[in-house]
Amino acid sequence: MTRSAPILTLLMGMVTTVALAVLSIAMAPAPRPVADGTTTAATREDPAAGGRTPAPQAPAEEPSEIPAAKADYAGRVQGSRGLFAISVRGDKAIAYFCDGKTEAWFQGTASDGELLLEGFGGAGVVAEVAGFKVTGEVQIGAQRWEFTAPTVRRPSGLYRATALVRGAKLVAGWIYLPDGRRVGAVTLDGNLITAEVPEPGEPTVIKGKRIDPQDVDEFIGAL
């Protein structure tokens, strides 16, 4: 045997060791991107658990409980065929109850999630904002009903219109729910008249006059 044989054997062993190390690195799982742009370790094998163990994830954020300074709510009234809509704009609030035959407008204040509104003839609303809904009680005359109204987005919600028709004052109110249910009432000099409920926010013709519904922001201070 020549002197070079041990040296060659040693070199071959070193080459094999380096090759195995490179192969081990290449087979290691790569980090995975997550939603916030950082990376997290890939799912790893957990022999004790007998399977794969997912990497820990951040808990989901809880919805805010802080009442919105600008929000619209609408829903059904328990024990009644009517709908109820209420809108908050800063420290002001406006509401409307309607079942097609009986209607009432309310206005009042919003403070720290508490809503206090008054209508004509002693009518009133007491309600509280909790998360993404308003719960409370509406009173009209001797009748009282409880209601729950979740937040809604346009075109759902509350609309109002006023006009002069042959010298008489016309006032119309409409409520639209996301499921398609709608209700409205029109009075002429305080007397209820028959009129169709238009599409949300769309103009209509009543007594031969074009009537343009107004969004809450346009009439909240006009009652």
Rank of each mutant, 00 (worst) to 15 (best):
R52M: 14
T38Q: 15
D91N: 05
F106H: 01
L20R: 03
A42M: 04
G90M: 10
A28Y: 05
A28L: 09
K101H: 15
A55F: 15
E61D: 12
E103S: 07
E65A: 13
A71F: 09
A93P: 01
P47E: 07
G121I: 01
A30F: 06
A35D: 10
G108K: 00
Q78H: 05
R44A: 14
R81G: 13
G119N: 00
G82H: 07
Y96F: 15
Y73Q: 11
D99E: 14
A49M: 15
A60Q: 14
V88H: 01
E65C: 07
A48Y: 11
P67Q: 10
Y96W: 11
V34C: 00
Y73F: 15
A93C: 05
P29D: 06
S111L: 04
T40Y: 04
R44W: 10
S87H: 12
S80R: 09
S24H: 08
K70Q: 10
T43N: 12
L83K: 02
G100L: 10
T109H: 03
P54A: 04
A49I: 10
R89A: 12
D72F: 03
A60R: 11
L83V: 07
G82I: 14
G108S: 01
G113Q: 02
A35P: 05
L83W: 05
A110T: 02
D112K: 03
P56K: 04
G90R: 04
G50H: 12
V125N: 02
L83P: 01
F106V: 00
Q78C: 04
A42Y: 06
V22A: 10
Y73R: 06
L117P: 00
I86D: 04
A49E: 14
A30Y: 07
V34W: 01
V126R: 03
A48F: 14
S87L: 01
R89W: 07
G90P: 03
T102A: 09
K70S: 08
T43P: 13
A48N: 10
P56F: 08
T109Q: 04
S87V: 09
E114H: 02
